[in-house]
Design a binder for these strands. Structure first.
Length: 879
DNA sequence: GGAGTCACG
DNA sequence: ACGTACGTGACTCCC
């Protein structure tokens, strides 16, 4: 069998991948989708073809011989979008890392190089495969040269293959005649002019009949469609120029050596490292499993299993200013500790023999009095180790979150890569697989030891770089003054939990079940069949096809059955009201009645987790269960709050900030109208209505006030006329009108918001009053929608984020005062602008005072921070 | 695992 | 023209 060479059209395949596949972004925010798609395509082809030689051709920026003969050539070609342009060096870097030969030549296009190499290789008797997205390449097809054109339809890539024979079958012309076709038709993408009035059909007809443009011109009199005849007559010279332009130069002076192009092992260490950096997790599986071990620097880790040795280690650690730790634990138990005393002395101390979990945790707490404990998640550690704010800690996860809040996880291997100059360490999955710490402790001490040591070492090494980065970005204060103390505040809230009446919750669920069943039957009866009402797909078919309800359609996958869509159709059929009610009840039952009931611990309380490193803006989030979205707007749902009760001898005290985001906006923008309104404690929505609609303050109608309120919300979200029109069910024009009038009323706010966008565009991030940052890479996008999103984010993040900063400060202060004043009352929940305290009855007056003082005093703005406070014997009553 | 839906601020 | 309000998490269906 003859040897085979695979030739790839670099830019064309990258383009295909970019436009045909969804974009991806790695943890640094680099766009990587096209690179990923490119690799997937070529790896697939390589597996199919198994060529001996491989090379990828790229165009250069320099003008080519085509420019010399035709000035407009590619002159008006639209520039590559930013997201694609930044991937060109990445794919070249990747190919280089894989040892793949790249060819380019000034003055020539990739096509010319591919054509030249194809002919040379063919002459040597090789089989040639050319991979490109560009049909122009078909002119190169022969019996030995196959052109492969990938096509992506809805994310699925299929490949069309062409030898000379297939070209003839599909286009009725020989490969060489493809040039004639193109010269006649023209090609707007390549700026090849072509002949006016001649499209694919006419061109094919002419070439099939006459073989070439020249021969057609010889017989120009006979040409049938008058238009084509006259056009060819008039533009013959142009057609010949086009032909020159469209002809691939198969004798380009390309520097090429088959030796260098010989296909070797693609799965090199360098490529592995780059795949890791770009987050190509699926590709990593193709690499040798020992790769990551070979890549990481070999460092000796030690294991200490005896009590006296362990004592000695902690004594040594106590002489350090800072150590790295990795406490291996789950909710119930501690399994061991990774301890990096210095960057060279790294130990794994498993729980074994006389070394118990509580013993280890006690040693850590003692150590932390004089030595700073670095870890990646201090709050989890606090579940076993009794640390207070007087202990010294550093949370590398929280620090990394502040530096880039857009990541979804903050893992050790990312820290090492990002803050230790690209250093590679194995991930938890690589070391332990999917095993829990418990399982690994039982079955894989070696893996657990490595994991503990790598983690301890990394958090130690990363502390200084993280600290420095926080200082350089002006976020050191946010870290030390807000986030670090917040770890202890949140930990206390999680440990305290909130009492929930399980039986009442069950009874509530049962009541729902009765009504849900009734609705189910009514819906089946009206639909004339039983189906799964919870399936939007089935529901859509029943409503819009079977029952013929008008006005459906939306979404990629079918009909939209969202509440706002159905509400507009409720008139048509009574079934719709039943479905809406069913949906509401089903939600209440599954998520709240049943969901919460399953989360009640043995102590009769629910202990949610408050996540500190999730949101892009600086808010906290709540999971397992989410206690920040307990129903309140509808009465039926609101009743659930009756099962959240304080323990005996306590009441709930609930305080929420009144319109904190608008107040933040007033302060940050310095708009005097808004500031004065708040100073005079005016109804802000009514005021906005009176000014925007030009009516006296006391003659504002409820509708006008409602509209003004929506505008105020819109401003905070990053206003757009479309969004506002959706919300108010008005036309875009009317919405735009409201917005315009709003900005006339509050000119400083317009200025302020414009400035937020401009600053974010220049700096690449938006900032809160306290200096917390949120990167906004979307502002640089070439996609209108993405960019508009970036603009709204740039307006919203500083406002939402500043409010988040303020309530975090308030929480820390409240927590601290309750503690320092020896109170038994405890903070139990935070819901973004609301704090809930389980308050001892005898402490009520003082706690109310503490809560009000600390919330109001958390920030001093140009407007007062107003707080609404209520007490009650359930969350329902305290709101 | 993604899409659709819906609960909250 | 493009086609969305900002920030979350849980549940269900369905590939």
């Amino acid at each position: 069998m003859s040897e085979k060479i695979l030739l790839i059209d670099g830019h064309s395949i990258l383009n295909r991948a970019f436009y045909g596949l969804p974009d991806l972004t790695n943890s640094e925010g680099l766009h990587t989708g096209a690179v990923y798609g490119f690799l997937n395509i070529i790896l697939r082809i390589l597996e199919e073809e198994k060529p001996k030689y491989l090379t990828v051709a790229f165009d250069l920026h320099a003008p080519t011989f085509r420019h010399k003969i035709y000035e407009a050539y590619k002159g008006t070609r639209k520039p590559m979008p930013q997201e694609l342009r930044e991937q060109v060096p990445l794919i070249k870097e990747m190919l280089q890392a894989m040892g793949v030969e790249i060819v380019s030549k000034e003055g020539y296009e990739a096509d010319d190089l591919l054509g030249t190499l194809a002919r040379q290789s063919e002459a040597k008797g090789m089989d040639v495969t050319i991979l490109s997205g560009d049909r122009d390449l078909l002119q190169l097809a022969t019996e030995k040269v196959m052109i492969r054109l990938p096509k992506t339809v809805r994310g699925k890539t299929t490949i069309e293959d062409y030898h000379a024979q297939q070209v003839i079958e599909k286009y009725q012309v020989t490969p060489a005649q493809v040039i004639e076709l193109k010269a006649l038709m023209g090609d707007s993408a390549d700026n090849i002019p072509g002949i006016p009035g001649v499209g694919e059909k006419t061109a094919t007809k002419l070439i099939v009949e006459y073989g070439s443009i020249e021969n057609a011109y010889q017989h120009v009199e006979e040409i049938k469609p008058n238009k084509a005849r006259e056009s060819l007559r008039e533009h013959y010279n142009l057609a010949q120029l086009s032909k020159t332009l469209a002809t691939i130069n198969t004798e380009s002076p390309v520097d090429f050596s088959y030796e260098k192009a010989r296909l070797g092992d693609l799965y090199t260490k360098e490529a592995f490292a780059l795949c890791k950096r770009l987050d190509f997790k699926n590709l990593l599986a193709r690499f040798d499993q020992t790769m990551s071990q070979e890549l990481t620097e070999v460092k000796e880790f030690f294991t200490c299993e005896d009590l006296s040795g362990c004592e000695a280690l902690f004594e040594k650690a106590g002489k350090q200013k800072v150590v790295g730790t990795a406490l291996l634990s789950d909710k119930e138990e501690v399994y061991g500790l990774g301890l990096a005393i210095t960057e060279q002395e790294i130990y794994y101390i498993p729980v074994a023999n006389f070394i118990t979990g509580p013993y280890l945790c006690g040693k850590i707490a003692d150590l932390a009095l004089n030595t700073r404990i670095c870890a990646i998640d201090i709050k989890t550690m606090l579940k076993h180790v009794n640390l207070e704010e007087e202990h010294q800690v550093f949370d590398a996860g929280v620090a990394a979150y502040l530096l880039n809040p857009l990541k979804s996880t903050y893992t050790c291997e990312d820290l090492a890569r990002e803050y230790e100059g690209g250093k590679m360490i194995p991930s938890r999955e690589e070391l332990l697989g999917k095993a829990s710490f418990r399982k690994a402790w039982e079955e894989d001490q070696e893996g657990l030891s490595s994991y503990a040591c790598y983690t301890a070492e990394t958090v130690l090494s990363c502390m200084e770089p993280l600290k420095q980065a926080l200082e350089e970005t002006g976020m050191w204060k946010v870290y030390t003054q807000i986030e670090l103390p917040l770890i202890f505040t949140l930990d206390s809230m999680e440990k305290t939990g909130i009492q929930v009446k399980g039986e009442e919750l069950k009874a509530y669920g049962d009541r729902l079940a009765v009504r849900i069943h009734e609705l189910e039957q009514a819906i089946y009866q009206q639909a004339g069949e039983e189906f799964n009402i919870n399936s939007p797909k089935q529901l859509g078919v029943v409503l819009f096809e079977k029952m013929g309800i008008k006005g459906g359609k939306k979404t990629k996958t079918g009909y939209s059955t969202a509440a706002d869509v159905l509400e507009k159709l409720a008139e048509q059929q009574p079934i719709i009201k039943d479905i809406l009610e069913y949906r509401q009840l089903a939600k209440l039952k599954s998520t709240y009645a049943d969901g919460l009931a399953g989360m009640i611990d043995k102590d009769g309380r629910i202990h949610s987790t408050f996540n500190q490193t999730i949101t892009a803006t600086g808010r906290i989030s709540s999971t397992e269960p989410n206690l920040q979205n307990i129903p309140v707007r509808m009465e039926l749902g609101r009743l659930i709050r009756k099962v959240f009760v304080p323990e005996d001898g306590c009441v709930f005290l609930d305080a929420d900030y009144s319109q904190i985001e608008l107040r933040v906006l007033a302060h940050m923008s310095g708009d005097q109208t808004l500031i004065q309104a708040y100073q005079q404690a005016q109804d802000i929505h009514r005021l906005t209505a009176s000014q925007v609609f030009h009516v006296p303050f006391d003659q504002v109608t409820p509708l006008q006030r409602r509209n003004a309120k929506a505008v105020n919300f819109g401003i905070v979200y990053g206003i757009s006329s479309f969004g506002l029109s959706q919300d108010l069910s008005i036309t875009r024009k009317e919405a735009a009108d409201y917005i315009q009038k709003y900005f006339e009323t509050y000119p400083k706010i317009k200025e302020f918001l414009d400035d937020l966008v401009e600053t974010a565009r220049e700096k690449g991030y938006a900032s809160t009053m306290y200096g917390r940052r949120r990167p906004v890479p979307e502002l640089k996008s070439s996609n209108f929608m993405q960019r508009s999103f970036g603009e709204r984010v740039a307006m919203n993040s500083p406002i939402q984020g500043t409010a988040a900063d303020i309530i975090k400060i308030a929480m820390n202060r409240v927590y601290k005062r309750l503690k320092s004043e020896g109170k038994k009352s405890r903070l139990v929940l935070q819901v973004h602008d609301e704090l809930l305290i389980e308050t001892r009855k005898e402490e009520l007056t003082q706690v109310a005072r503490i809560l009000e003082e600390e919330m109001k005093g958390a920030a001093s703005l140009q407007v007062e921070l107003e707080v609404d406070m209520h007490e009650g014997s359930s969350w329902y009553e305290a709101k």
